[in-house]
Simulated scan of single mutants.
Amino acid sequence: MSTSLMYLLLRQVLQMLSQLARDGGAKDVEILVRRHQVAVLRRQVHRPGGR
């Protein structure tokens, strides 16, 4: 139990530190990459026909 708690805390701390280290340009690039990933995933979704 304590190992998983320590893992979660360490993960949160590292995530906060990485966000502080990023500059605005890196965030803009990440947003563009995420938007592209969403667009690709939307094309892969098979929607039911409207008959």
Rank of each mutant, 00 (worst) to 15 (best):
L32P: 00
A21H: 06
R34K: 14
L10K: 14
R42T: 03
Q37R: 15
V45Y: 07
L20S: 07
G24N: 08
T3L: 05
S2A: 15
L10E: 09
G49W: 02
L5M: 14
L9W: 13
R47D: 05
L10N: 11
V33T: 09
L14N: 11
D28L: 05
S4N: 11
Q44E: 00
R51T: 08
L10I: 10
D28Y: 04
A39E: 10
M1A: 14
S2E: 13
S18W: 07
S2R: 12
V13P: 01
H36C: 12
L14R: 15
R51V: 08
G25I: 01
E30K: 01
R42L: 04
S2T: 14
R35K: 15
A26S: 04
Q19Y: 12
I31N: 11
G49L: 04
V38A: 10
R51Q: 12
R47A: 05
R22T: 03
E30C: 01
S18Y: 07
L32H: 04
D23M: 02
Y7I: 12
G25W: 00
V45E: 09
Y7F: 14
Q44H: 08
V40A: 09
Y7K: 15
A26M: 02
R42D: 06
V40R: 03
Y7R: 15
M16H: 11
P48I: 01
R22L: 00
D23Y: 00
V29E: 10
L20T: 10
A21W: 03
V40E: 15
L32I: 07
H36I: 11
G24V: 06
T3Q: 06
G49I: 01
M1G: 14
T3I: 03
R47G: 01
S2I: 12
A26G: 01
P48A: 04
L5S: 10
V40L: 12
L5Q: 13
A21Q: 10
Q12W: 11
D28I: 02
A21R: 10
R35S: 15
G25K: 02
D28F: 03
M1V: 07
